[in-house]
């Protein structure tokens, strides 16, 4: 798409959309929203970039392969935090009992592992959105590229 208005508006809008998504993720334990909502906002912003410019520009910023790796690393971060609690001698995803420092309730850096888990969910959801879009747009030849 070669529309100047769409390009400039989306270029102006993108930082604010992504900042808001990051805000929703990082305040997931304090305010409405969380990993899923914030990840959906960030994923939608990346789809907006790939749509308003073209797919080559979008894949230059975040390639299909990178988004697939990010997708797995998000879920690995979640499981890793759970396994860390097992290593510390408690249940899976044990938080305060495992000795993970809990700040004062209401502060940004509080609730121990929950914040990191929410961040992992956010990465996972955002990269899932963009991977879905790439897979749907690219078609067959792009799909083979992923497996190599």
């Amino acid at each position: 798409m070669e529309d100047v208005i769409v390009r400039y508006i989306s270029r102006m809008l993108l930082p604010f959309v992504q900042l808001y998504g990051l805000y929703v993720i990082l305040n997931g334990h304090l305010s409405p929203g969380g990993g899923f909502s914030g990840g959906a906002i960030i994923g939608a912003s990346m789809i907006l970039y790939a749509l308003s410019f073209n797919l080559e520009e979008g894949t230059k910023k975040l390639s299909h392969k990178t988004s697939t790796i990010l997708e797995s690393s998000g879920v690995l971060l979640y499981a890793g935090m759970g396994l860390l609690s097992i290593l510390l001698g408690t249940n899976f995803l044990g938080n305060k009992v495992a000795g993970i420092p809990i700040g004062t309730p209401g502060n940004l850096f509080s609730s121990g592992a929950i914040m990191i888990i929410t961040f992992g969910v956010g990465i996972k959801v955002a990269s899932t959105m963009i991977t879905l879009f790439y897979s749907l747009i690219e078609g067959e030849e792009g799909h083979e590229d992923v497996h190599h």
């Binding site: 909502s37 906002i41 789809i47």
Partner: peptide, 14 residues
């Protein structure tokens, strides 16, 4: 928030 981002945004695009 989720409905606005997913329902109006991503679902439409897909």
């Amino acid at each position: 928030i989720t409905e606005a981002a997913l329902g109006a945004g991503v679902t439409t695009l897909l």
